[in-house]
Design a protein around this nucleic acid. Sequence first.
DNA 1: AAGGTAGCGGTTTTT
DNA 2: CCGCTACCTT
Length: 714
Amino acid sequence: MSAIITEKAFEYLDAPIKRVGSPFTPVGFNRILEKAILPNTDLIYKAAKELKSRVEDFIGSGAKSINVGTFHSICARILRQEIHNIGYSKNFTIYDTKDQLSLINTIIKTKNINLGSLKPKAILNKISKLKSDMIMPHEFDAKTYIPLEELTSIIYPLYMKHLAKCDALDFDDLLSLPIKLFKKHPEVLQKYQNFYKYILVDEYQDTNKSQFLFIDLLSKKHKNVCVVGDDDQSIYSWRGADVSNILDFEKTYPNSKVFKLEQNYRSTKNIITAAYSVVKNNNIRAEKKLWSDNETGDLIQILEGRDEYDEAYKISAAIQQEIRSAKRNFKDFAILYRTNAQSRVLEQVLNRNKIPNVIVGGVRFYERKEVKDIIAYLSFFANMKDDISLKRIINTPPRGIGNKTLDIIESHADENGISLFDSLSRLNEITLTSRANNVLTKFHEIIVQYSSLLSTINLEEWVRMLIDGLGYFKYLKGSDDEESKQRRANIDELLNAITDYCSTVEQPRLQDYLEEVALMTDIDSWKDKKNSVSLMTLHSAKGLEFPVVLIPGLNTGLLPLGNDDIDEKALNEERRLFYVGITRAEKKLYIAFAHERNVFGQTKSSFESQFLAELPSELVTNQTSEFSSSTNLKSGESTPYKAPAKRSSTSSTTATSSAVSKTKDPKPGMMVSHKIFGTGKIMRVLGHGPNSKLTINFRSAGTKTIIARYVKLF
DNA sequence: AAGGTAGCGGTTTTT
DNA sequence: CCGCTACCTT
């Protein structure tokens, strides 16, 4: 989500103003915002430039001092300037999720905490939730009979202490510390209030408590705030976003004006109607009527695949068909899925069909092991108190510093209340084997050496020398050939990115580069200059639009995601996610599902998503006549995927008929019913046919093993 | 005491 | 199918 903070640009608006119905905005600011901020942007500063020029086009000159950025980046910028006021170092490091987890694991290990069956990730999620609600450790009223809460109440304060010791901030701190700063130092607040006289927030429905407070404080003086959003598109409640921020805006700011933007300029009538038919099934939402002057448009096409490969194949075929008949370009298409894992198969099949494609997000570039390794080195040089990065690099590449040695160093640092690196400079105080002493001294020397080198040569050159000096490429060669090639390529790309950064910025600084990297969004790094089909998650697609959108994976368990015990609130959010996906489409919408899916490496039969049935049958077709039987795609000789399923099915034009798999063979994942035990899910199958033994997890009776002929398959 | 490997367990979504 | 742990080998 983005915040626009500008001085002149919004003067013509009466403020405060609330706008609702973000996807249905007339040609106006929101549209400019969507166009300007999200696509075609490499980095934040480029986005700001782009926005500036577009706003200038719109209101003429005067759009001078515009600041554009995500909440996180704007907050980070403020903190770099002001954080010393609340007792932190300006050299703070920003920890990503991996760093956070590693920190929590360190705590668990050193404090001998027994997590039981809980995972560190669960604790981290809990802590993050608390932080986004601005609940400090001492304010957390844990219900101690709930293990998660009790353990969190133990770990949370330690986690905070450890972060502070490392001069590190997590993503939540970036949002909450400015508020602490503003409250403690009114003079600092005032400075920024005067600096940002007009404030505009896009995607306001996805703001959390700290983001609300941030805007509230900043706008208190001049009271010029304009927010845009749509409660139907709230898809981040799992990370603390609170829809009531937008729903209660009028109450919070009694002088505000509301403009309902109910005309849609983006999509065809059919797409809008379909989107509405879906989202109206949600029980908690603000009713709005939507309309459009656009053409009625084509019907929504349902694609039915035998499995996810076939589904991907049908999607490829649909794209080829659209390109042939409607003269579209590859860049007009977006494939939007629920989970990143789905991108693999799609990418594979698209490649086989020679359809150029680009995955936005996914396993993020900067989270890949080899890239993260180098970034950890850089982070450590930027902040030597960063124990987490030190632990990552100290034996990468392997230099004979193992767990035992590290344990000794850690307890020394802990006892003396110093950083790990400080302990390394005081090895004489520590009892070590001479071998350990040697390798540690050597490591310490390397760090000192490169640290002093950093101030004498330029950043780019220094990074190259560092990677060289570490023998990192040699280290990568160790693993198997194809993989190490890829990893080397990634390091090369990282080097290119650094070179790029150095050439676009006046004064390249290691820290600034790292900050940019930490806060870069998927969309930022999206290079859509190439004429390619875009692949991304539904979450990433928010705010974007494409002539043709294809949404695969409309299966139970996948969209909506989760098992059948999904609660109403979560189901509503899944539905909103589907709604967001539908409303990305301008001209044409394809929705796909498969009868079988590979989950956990096992093929499981899969049912149609309930959301399919919510599409009005008269707007939907699954006649794929033009290409369903076609093998005219150049799919290559060795394509292992099966020819399109020959199903006698689908004489009906709706997708609402339930797709019952007619297979007689029971398979794991299928639902069954039993005279005595009721309904349950097959967990395991032993043997074949009616006499096979099924391990079934019954809803009320628990797990039983039963001969297949005694149960009924759904 | 390090480092390599086999086997296990576990699934969102993002800054 | 991927990452992590526990164990086994050097």
